[in-house]
Amino acid sequence: MRTIDLATTPLRALNEDLHRQKDGANEAKWEVLNPRGAHAVAAGVDAPISVDVKGSVGYYCAGMNKKAAITVHGSAGPGVAENMMSGKVVIKGDASQYAGATGRGGLLVIEGNASSRCGISMKGIDIIVKGNIGHMSAFMAQSGSLVVLGDAGDALGDSIYEAKLFVRGKVKSLGADCIEKEMRPEHHEALGKLLEQAGFTGVKSSEFKRYGSARKLYNFNIDNADAY
């Protein structure tokens, strides 16, 4: 295992080292000490390695992640796993705003709460939050799933496209064009798989409600012309 201490190694040296790792890298396990809120820790990794970050991080941790399994043993600042392509990112604490924003694939697990704009403009990523999420989450979400074991804040799924939202607790309000939808067998199955992947046992898919697009904002409606 490679251990890199950010108290003594510059952040750029860490990230350059991580960027050198490719498929079949022999250094499969990495540990990062003393992140102390640093920005862009382990951003842009493109290799099937595991990175354990021992502490809390600042902005854009694990951004653009491909293939790697990155675990933050603390909380994450704004934009964690932003534009993730694949792999798995786990936050043991809380995540700040726009967690998983624009993510195209992979799995983001937040074991605490996520704040506002979680999964904004998500495009295929799966996000599972054990706690609550803040306002304007899944805004313009295009595809992928957002699973929330706690409550969701105001304007959930505003202007949503085809992402699937599953919330176990209360939803403070739904955004424009977001409605509650029926949980069909395929949704129970998909949600069950996601819960299993995240390691959240003892939670049944039947405890969740599903939300998605009413598909009323997809095309311009001439009856709304006066609104512009």
Binding site: R36, G37, A38, S56, V57, G58, Y59, S75, G77
Partner: peptide
């Protein structure tokens, strides 16, 4: 209070 966690470490 800090704008970022870095301010509190």
């Amino acid at each position: 209070f800090g704008s970022e966690y870095r301010a509190l470490v």
